[in-house]
Design a protein around this nucleic acid. Structure first.
Length: 477
RNA sequence: UCCUAAGUAGCUCAGCUGGUUAGAGCAUCUGACUGUUAAUCAGAGGGUCCCUGGUUCGAGCCCAGGCUUGGGAGCCA
């Protein structure tokens, strides 16, 4: 008999008909009630088995985690707590699960423990919800850009350019570490390596994206990105996914407008398409909040927080304005900041960003026009000669979720800047060609996909929103 | 990388001032019960107290080094 997905059965009113479900046992209560889940819904379907007429040795194999197939009649539930259930006619075990060894129990587990069994955590409600939302958001990214006529560009994972300055890179090499080819001066002879030169995993697809934007006008990338930084935080991964649109003829304002529209679109898409999952995560968070002392509880629940983000314009201020606000702020006056804000030109610490977003404006903030000295070489210099057209979007609880800029389209300015920073211009000739032949103002940004998923799901550790997290000292599974 | 807290049963944790045979709840197993919702009741099994070394008559507990994890910082998306 053809299998029906549990999601469809839970919505069905076709009582009396015979159905088959296949899935994994979540709980088996009272020797009668099997809660089965097949991943199609965060909710289980209950199958009621008549233990008096069922082989006892078969029932013993209905253990948490076992895969089973059930055929029976779909009926209105006789008990409370669920609308429909299946009256079992035929029960068979597809795959046994040794209850003494299966690590997931029908109880609450800590996220830290589940991280150690990341290969099995998909089977929990929480991760079912998180990864469904992750999927929905990924789909929504493509839908958003496709509907706007953007071209999805696949940029290389392996690159030879080391001019990004975006962070430490992972080396890609086939050189035998026990037998390294050397030049006469003792340095590694990369001519012997696979690509004939030193190569790395990409830290960003931006530079390649700019090349394509000079032909297609509007492009985006969405792929894995790698940083070999020794960062041990709740919002950094060594391998993460990034969305990087790049638009010709966009100035900084257009760039900000697109970024804000994208973020709101994605949040709305999740609200509209993942209501069960968000509802579950919301109640899960509410329960965790109850464990906290009153003064540490957040004022908004997850759903309210998401709606608030949709209903309010992001606050847009310049770096210079931010510095003025911070200088005059209470924590700065009372010397409560660990790093006091005194001079124009220093980078903002995360305590400052958090103050602006969570205390002062109480909503997402777009910071623009940073000092050139603390930003990348490719950002467009303003007329004042000291700030660049950069923008960072800061989210409550997450910090920087987007970083972007209008790009420096003037060849002479760009070359001067690169010389200053000792970036080898000869190696970057391919990039500078965009400025040599039909250069136009253009802009783009990078959205950290996992940080977006963090925000939408309300999870607090980035390792819990990517299936198999790669972090320092951790590359399991 | 720095600061900080932690590591005890499958999981979550307790373990007094260093003192006999290391405990609880849940899970698991056995039995009872049979419309349950983290079912209930009775019983049983289950330990490299993170690792290495040291102090001591005696270390889960004290000291040193290491490993791992949580939280914070830096770097950033």
């Amino acid at each position: 008999m053809k299998r029906t997905k549990i999601k469809d059965l839970l919505n069905s009113t076709d009582f009396g008909g015979e159905v088959t479900v296949k899935g994994w046992v979540k709980t088996f209560r009272n020797n009668q009630f099997i809660a089965i889940n097949d991943g199609s819904s965060i909710n289980n379907i209950q199958a009621v088995v008549d233990f008096t007429s069922t082989d006892e040795s078969l029932l013993k194999r209905v253990t948490t985690g076992a895969a089973i197939s059930i055929t029976g009649q779909l009926v209105e539930s006789l008990g409370k707590g669920q609308r429909v259930e299946i009256k079992v006619k035929d029960l068979s075990i597809i795959g046994d699960s040794d209850a003494e060894k299966f690590p997931l129990q029908p109880k609450k587990h800590s996220l830290e423990f589940l991280r150690e069994i990341a290969h099995l955590r998909f089977r929990t409600n929480t991760f079912n919800a998180v990864f469904k939302i992750r999927h929905a958001l990924a789909f929504a990214v493509h839908k958003f850009f496709n509907d706007k006529g953007f071209l999805y560009l696949h940029t290389p994972i392996i690159t030879a350019s080391d001019a990004e300055g975006a962070g430490e890179m992972f080396r890609v090499s086939t050189i035998d570490p026990n037998n390294i080819p050397r030049n006469d001066d003792g340095s590694v002879n990369y001519k012997e390596d696979f690509f004939g030169k030193a190569t790395n995993l990409t830290v960003s697809g931006q530079l390649e994206g700019e090349l394509a934007a000079m032909a297609f006008s509007d492009i985006y990338t969405f792929g894995p990105t790698f940083r070999a930084e020794n960062s041990n935080t709740t919002r950094h991964l060594a391998e993460f996914w990034m969305i990087e649109p790049e638009m010709a003829f966009y100035e900084l304002q257009d760039n900000m407008d697109l970024a804000e529209e994208l973020l709101k679109y994605l949040v709305k898409y999740a609200i509209d398409n993942c209501s069960d999952e968000l509802e579950f995560l919301n109640s899960r968070l509410l329960e965790e909040e109850k464990q906290k002392p009153q003064n540490e509880r957040s004022e908004f629940d997850l759903l309210a927080k998401l709606k608030f983000c949709l209903d309010n314009d992001f606050e847009r201020i310049t770096y210079t304005e931010a510095i003025e606000i911070l200088k005059a702020s209470k924590p700065n006056q009372k010397k409560q900041f660990k790093y006091l804000v005194e001079e124009w030109g220093t980078d903002l610490q995360s305590e400052h960003e958090r103050f602006l977003v969570e205390k002062h404006f109480k909503k997402p903030v777009i910071l623009t026009d940073y000092p050139a000295a603390i930003k990348s070489f490719y950002m467009r210099l303003n007329e004042d000669g000291k700030t660049v057209r950069a923008m960072d979007i800061l989210f409550p609880g997450i910090g920087e979720i987007i970083g972007g800029s209008q790009r420096e389209e003037r060849l002479d300015h760009l070359e001067a800047r690169m010389k200053n920073l000792h970036i080898p211009i000869e190696d970057m000739s391919w990039y500078l060609d965009t400025r040599r032949y039909g250069s136009v103002p253009h802009s783009g940004f990078g959205l950290g996909f996992e940080r977006l998923v963090l925000f939408v799901t309300g999870m607090t550790n980035i390792r819990d929103v990517i299936p198999f997290p790669r972090t320092p000292k951790n590359a399991d599974f």
